[in-house]
């Protein structure tokens, strides 16, 4: 893991969206959560998806992560188009090629930290790669917590266990949905630091939905969504630039609402 894939290497696509449209409801009540989004997410990159509430950022992630099916358009993960896959194949894809970190309730309460980390592998009936497991566990700093159940751990520790679980199956891409939404700033920093390291040290691809500029500042690239469309993009962001873009988006959204 000495190479740095994001510098200079030919950027490979980890997942992409093609004209993704997702609508909820019918007729008058129809809501277009995604209004034809096309985007490529690069391998070995830490991407943030930002936007005001209702901009469609979570929907985009869910469609790419095989948790939701788009109304039209195509979602591709690791070269596989999700459109034609049956539930069984989607399950396998999630298990083997996608990692998840949710905002809360990430862990199965009846299982210990170690069992939770190994859950995707044991569901697949695969033997864990012990070295890799150790590396991940040490990296999240949970060596002494492995035997604990979720109820015996703090929120930050639980999120780190969730991160370790997302990585242990060596997925093509990790989706994190507001992973620091419920955490204090110290725990947030630990979790984000770990996600950053997983990209830098392990060459992992991470996509994170967030509305926290601090969290977004850990990433390589930020996609800004508004009203179901990607309206802007920022590379190597710093906090001020993010705040500026965000407030502009809020203004545009507010203006549009007044007009409509």
């Amino acid at each position: 893991m000495t190479e740095q894939p994001r510098e200079g290497a030919v950027a490979e696509v980890a997942a992409s969206a093609r004209d993704l449209v997702k609508t909820y409801g019918k007729g008058e009540a129809e809501v277009r959560a995604l209004d034809g989004v096309s985007v490529d997410l690069m391998k070995g990159e830490f991407t943030a998806v930002m936007g005001p509430s209702g901009s469609g950022k979570s929907t985009l992630m869910h469609c790419l992560a095989a948790l939701d099916t788009p109304t039209s358009g195509e979602a591709i993960v690791d070269g596989t188009s999700l459109g034609r896959l049956k539930d069984k194949d989607l399950t396998t894809l999630r298990r083997e090629r996608v990692g998840f970190v949710f905002q809360s309730f990430n862990l199965v309460p009846t299982l210990s930290a170690e069992e939770n980390i190994l859950l995707p592998l044991s569901l697949a009936g695969r033997k864990p790669d012990r070295d890799w497991f150790d590396q991940v566990v040490d990296s999240v700093g949970l060596r002494d917590r492995l035997g604990h159940r979720p109820s015996e751990m703090s929120g930050g520790q639980q999120q780190r266990v969730a991160c370790a679980r997302a990585l242990v199956s060596k997925p093509s891409i990790v989706f994190a949905d507001e992973p620091t939404g419920n955490l204090d700033s110290t725990s947030s920093a630990e979790v984000l630091g770990f996600l950053r390291r997983s990209v830098d040290e392990f060459g992992q691809t991470v996509v994170m939905v967030t509305h926290d500029p601090v969290a977004a500042s850990y990433t390589d690239r930020i996609l800004f969504l508004a009203d179901g469309l990607i309206v802007d993009e920022l590379r190597e962001p710093d906090r001020d630039a993010i705040l500026e873009k965000m407030s502009k988006l809020q203004d545009v959204a507010a203006a549009r609402k007044q007009a409509g």
Binding site: L67, D87, K88, T91, T92, R94, R95, E96, F100, F102, F105, N106, L107, V108, P109, L119, P120, L123, A124, R165
Partner: peptide
Amino acid sequence: TREIGLLRAVGLSRRK
């Protein structure tokens, strides 16, 4: 419900 959702998300098939 949420736990089942989580298990499904991380790869538990319907049959299992």
